[in-house]
Computed example of a mutant assay.
Amino acid sequence: MPDTPPPDPEAALARLLDTMARLRDPVGGCPWDQVQSFETIAPYTIEEAYEVADAIRRGDRAALLDELGDLLFQVVYHARIAEEEGSFSFNDVAENIHRKMVSRHPHVFGSATARDAAAQTAAWEVQKAAERAARAETGTLAGIPDGLPALTRANKLTRRAARVGFDWPEPAAVLDKLEEEAAELRAELPEADPVRLADEVGDLLFVLANLARKLDLDPEECLRGANAKFERRFTAVEAQLAARGLAPNDAGLEAMEAEWQAVKRAERGASPE
């Protein structure tokens, strides 16, 4: 018979913290959990955050419940490792974010006048800048984590630079830069120097992230949509080939391209490109 759920959030959290402590116990804990570190757990933390976002995108509340629990467990895991080494505890994590949120919302917790969403966003950025200064993080681009997905970090870097006026005046100017970078990449193709090619492809992707920002789009979401579209269409191509008794390897590029175009035409008839 499953355990009866605890009657309140504090009890539920206490049970979770106790579970984590038992898993990490050096004598009776789980051998896998005992040897984990911040570094080995970090990839799982990132993965769980993406799975939360995916459940939200799909509108699957049951999955969201499950994935939020997995993400919370990651926070508890890191806090437990930190407590074992004497750095901080879960309580410190909770208290720190509490103080930060109170500080960043003086219109809620203080005497400041309530603002609309746009004004509050601006005030939030001012507060974060002050916090960076207190941590001696100087410079316009200070404090943007290296561990972010590259497209997301490019978006944040250029947004920060744009606040001090370092930006293209309009999206069309970014397209001009995109053409310039594409030409530079094309010029490198004959030599095929991997270092130079990587540099030029990086420049091209960075400009594309800028273009998304100028159009008020999230580059990660744009690429995620493109990934989903490619997956959907290629799966349909495979299904069409299978109906003809063919595998992709046997069909050849010409046949696959013909099926690809057929799938695109069918999709255009049902929804915008």
Rank of each mutant, 00 (worst) to 15 (best):
residue 228 A to R: 13
residue 36 Q to T: 02
residue 164 V to Y: 04
residue 252 G to R: 00
residue 8 D to G: 02
residue 220 E to N: 13
residue 147 G to Q: 11
residue 51 E to T: 02
residue 229 K to I: 03
residue 189 L to S: 07
residue 29 G to E: 02
residue 6 P to M: 03
residue 245 G to I: 00
residue 92 D to S: 06
residue 48 E to V: 04
residue 51 E to G: 04
residue 141 L to I: 00
residue 116 D to N: 07
residue 238 E to H: 04
residue 15 R to N: 02
residue 229 K to S: 13
residue 50 Y to T: 07
residue 83 E to S: 09
residue 191 E to A: 07
residue 68 L to W: 02
residue 62 A to V: 10
residue 205 L to P: 12
residue 13 L to V: 08
residue 156 K to D: 12
residue 37 S to L: 00
residue 181 E to D: 04
residue 167 D to F: 08
residue 18 D to F: 04
residue 256 M to A: 05
residue 2 P to V: 01
residue 156 K to H: 15
residue 63 A to P: 02
residue 132 R to H: 14
residue 221 E to Y: 01
residue 230 F to P: 10
residue 125 E to H: 15
residue 170 E to F: 12
residue 80 R to V: 10
residue 58 R to P: 01
residue 200 E to M: 04
residue 63 A to K: 09
residue 220 E to P: 01
residue 232 R to K: 08
residue 10 E to C: 04
residue 232 R to V: 04
residue 159 R to I: 03
residue 39 E to M: 08
residue 86 G to N: 03
residue 93 V to R: 03
residue 77 Y to D: 14
residue 251 A to P: 09
residue 12 A to D: 07
residue 259 E to R: 09
residue 113 T to S: 06
residue 3 D to E: 00
residue 100 K to R: 01
residue 239 A to C: 05
residue 14 A to I: 05
residue 241 L to Q: 03
residue 111 S to E: 11
residue 2 P to F: 01
residue 19 T to W: 03
residue 191 E to P: 00
